[in-house]
Design a protein around this nucleic acid. Structure first.
Length: 418
RNA sequence: GCGGGUGUAGCUCAGUUGGUUAGAGCGCCAGUUUGUGGCACUGGAGGUCGCGGGUUCAAUUCUCGUCACUCGCCCCA
């Protein structure tokens, strides 16, 4: 029995669920394309270095959450834990840095060796966008506007809050980091065990600690804004101004920081209270140093990623498209099946969705037609076949008419049925 | 990685203070209906009570372990 279980934290996507995933992906992709973003796909497996260098050695993702595989040549490979580093790698591998800007959309599975929960799986799915080569705030604004539009189309933007903050440029960020560490060192004995450890590895993350004691200490801690230099402040102001003009509501959150090393300047998250402790639905920011960190030229970038499973959990019934009802081919006897297949083929070419019914007589097959939620049954008995006719039965009203096979498509289209 | 909860039919859940053949609703299959489905009625299939060890004359029930899911922490989308 155990071997029939899927691997922990990895789920099958059955048709009902898969439809929702596809709906999210297709909606997002279409909107992204209307902004000029083009779809890209990178391998699921990369050299470990790709993530180690970009995400930062101290991040949990790199230090303990990567699925590692050694290939037969002894290379250290990993299943990708996120999409940005792979896309950045592809940009360089393919020499795409020559014609900027680059605007990419991607969707696909990611892998993290974490303890599964609702909305947090070991194999999960992201959609995301990356914009390379635009240093100005328009880039940030546009990318956030794109995110907002996708969430609006999926009908979840009203149940989500855009939280936004700036980490400043590296000068500002380093200055703040030093001041924060100095302050916290004075209070180290009162810090929670988690935060004591973070003080060494990733002090900025202490800012969103949920520990009450930590929160008390942080009340008097130096503020990020105090360390912002003039340019960093100006850049951030411009972004906020742009969001206001585009009427995208946001909430400043000075505690919002990023776990991953490559972020600078703006950081943002669309969060919800509907998903328990997995409140972040879409998150991103600017990563001007990323390409350079990987050994490429200094090319700025900004982007975001969203968890498809989390988006799917927030979908409401109304937005999910209901699949078009099929037409059911109902041959009355097995020997007529082949005529049914012929008719089905013709109708599909004319744009209809057509399903065969398999096995049994008329009664049984109508039952099956009903079960697949067909709108009409196309009945083929001895009489119909000898005269090239078909009985078209409306399964909602029970009405039926005899029609020449060659005219049944037109008949349906006249009634508005595809 | 740490702490708590849960696990009985395909699904949602009853139940057993440890005792013979473990139940319901929905779903599924068949029949009433061999050229007419849905509704109704009748019948049927489907469970090693998550898995493994321990206690006991006897374990689905008590106990330990394990796996999965779930809630919180960590982290993150």
């Amino acid at each position: 029995m155990t071997t029939l279980q899927p691997v922990r934290g990895m789920h099958d996507l059955l048709p009902l669920e898969h439809q929702k995933h596809s709906f999210v992906i297709d909606s997002a992709k279409n909107i992204a394309m209307s902004y000029g973003f083009a779809e890209i796909a990178t391998p699921l497996i990369e050299f470990k270095e790709v993530f180690k260098r970009t995400l930062g050695d101290v991040s949990d993702i790199v230090s303990k959450e990567m699925y590692e595989v050694a290939d037969r040549g002894g290379e250290h490979l990993v299943l990708r834990p996120e999409g940005t580093a792979g896309v950045a790698r592809a940009v360089m591998s393919n020499g795409l840095t020559q014609s900027l800007p680059l605007k990419y959309f991607y969707a696909g599975p990611m892998f993290r060796y974490e303890r599964p929960q609702k909305g947090r799986l070991r194999q999960f799915h992201h959609i995301g966008v990356e914009l390379f080569g635009v240093p100005d705030s328009v880039g940030d604004i546009e990318v956030i506007a794109l995110a907002h539009e996708i969430l609006t189309t999926l009908n979840i933007s009203s149940r989500v809050t855009l939280e936004i903050n700036t980490l400043g440029d590296s000068e500002s960020r380093n200055d703040y980091r030093n001041r924060l560490v100095a302050y916290l060192r004075d209070h180290i004995t009162a810090l929670s065990p988690d935060s004591k450890e973070r003080l060494e590895r990733n002090p900025l993350r202490i800012l969103d600690s949920k520990d009450e004691g930590d929160k008390r200490i942080l009340k008097n801690a130096p503020q990020l804004t105090e360390s912002m230099n003039a340019r960093s402040k100006e850049v951030f102001e411009k972004i906020l101004e742009g969001l206001k003009i585009l009427q995208i509501p946001f909430k400043l959150n000075p505690q919002l920081v990023r776990g991953l090393d490559y972020y600078c300047h703006v950081a943002f998250e669309f969060t919800t209270t509907e998903l328990g402790s997995q409140g972040t639905v879409l998150a991103g920011g600017r990563y001007d140093g990323l390409i350079a960190t990987m050994g490429g030229p200094s090319i700025p970038g900004v982007g975001w990623a969203a968890g498809i499973e989390r988006l799917v959990m927030m979908l409401t019934q109304e937005v999910c498209p209901t699949p078009t009802r099929p037409l059911a081919i109902v041959p009355m006897e097995e020997e007529f099946d082949i005529y049914g297949l012929q008719l089905a083929q013709t109708l599909r070419k004319q744009g209809h969705i057509v399903e065969m019914t398999y096995g049994g007589g008329l009664g049984k097959r109508l039952k099956k037609a009903n079960k697949i939620n067909a709108s009409h049954a196309l009945i083929l008995g001895a009489e119909e076949i000898s005269s090239h006719m078909v009985t078209l039965k409306n399964l909602d009203t029970g009405d039926q008419v005899l029609s020449p096979q060659s005219q049944v498509s037109q008949l349906l289209k006249d009634k508005g049925v595809l």
